[in-house]
Amino acid sequence: EADPRLIESLSQMLSMGFSDEGGWLTRLLQTKNYDIGAALDTIQY
Rank of each mutant, 00 (worst) to 15 (best):
G23H: 07
M13T: 00
T31Y: 13
Q30Y: 10
D35E: 09
S15E: 14
D35N: 12
T42V: 10
R27Q: 14
L29P: 01
A38K: 11
G23P: 00
D41A: 15
I7L: 13
Q44Y: 15
I43S: 02
A2E: 12
I43Q: 03
G22P: 01
A2K: 15
L14A: 09
G37N: 15
S19F: 08
M13F: 08
Q12I: 15
E1S: 14
L10K: 03
G17L: 03
S15L: 09
A38L: 13
Y45N: 15
M16S: 04
I36A: 06
G37R: 14
D20V: 02
L29G: 00
I7G: 10
W24H: 06
L29M: 04
Y34N: 06
L28E: 02
L25M: 04
E1I: 13
S19H: 13
G17P: 02
L40N: 03
D20Y: 02
G17R: 00
L25A: 01
N33Q: 11
D35C: 09
L40P: 00
I36V: 11
S9I: 08
E1K: 09
N33T: 06
I36E: 00
L29W: 02
L40I: 12
D20S: 02
E21N: 12
Q30D: 06
P4M: 11
Q12W: 10
I7V: 13
D3R: 05
D20A: 02
S19L: 09
E8T: 11
L29E: 03
Q12N: 09
L6H: 07
S19G: 10
Q44E: 12
D35F: 04
R27N: 12
E8I: 13
A2M: 14
D3W: 05
L10R: 06
Q12D: 04
K32W: 06
R5W: 07
S15I: 12
A38S: 10
L28Y: 03
S15P: 02
L28R: 00
Q30I: 15
W24R: 04
T31P: 01
A38F: 06
L29D: 03
P4H: 12
K32T: 15
D3I: 06
T42Q: 14
K32D: 02
G37T: 14
A38G: 08
Y45H: 14
R27V: 13
P4T: 11
D41E: 15
E21F: 08
D41R: 13
L25S: 00
N33H: 05
S15M: 12
D3P: 07
L25C: 09
L6A: 06
L25K: 00
L25I: 07
D20G: 02
S9K: 06
A39C: 08
R5V: 06
L14H: 07
Q44I: 14
L14M: 13
S11W: 08
L29V: 02
D41P: 03
T42E: 15
K32H: 11
L29N: 01
G22H: 08
G17K: 04
D35Y: 04
G22W: 05
G17S: 01
A39G: 01
G22S: 08
D3G: 05
T42K: 09
D20N: 12
Q12L: 12
G23L: 07
Q12P: 01
R27Y: 08
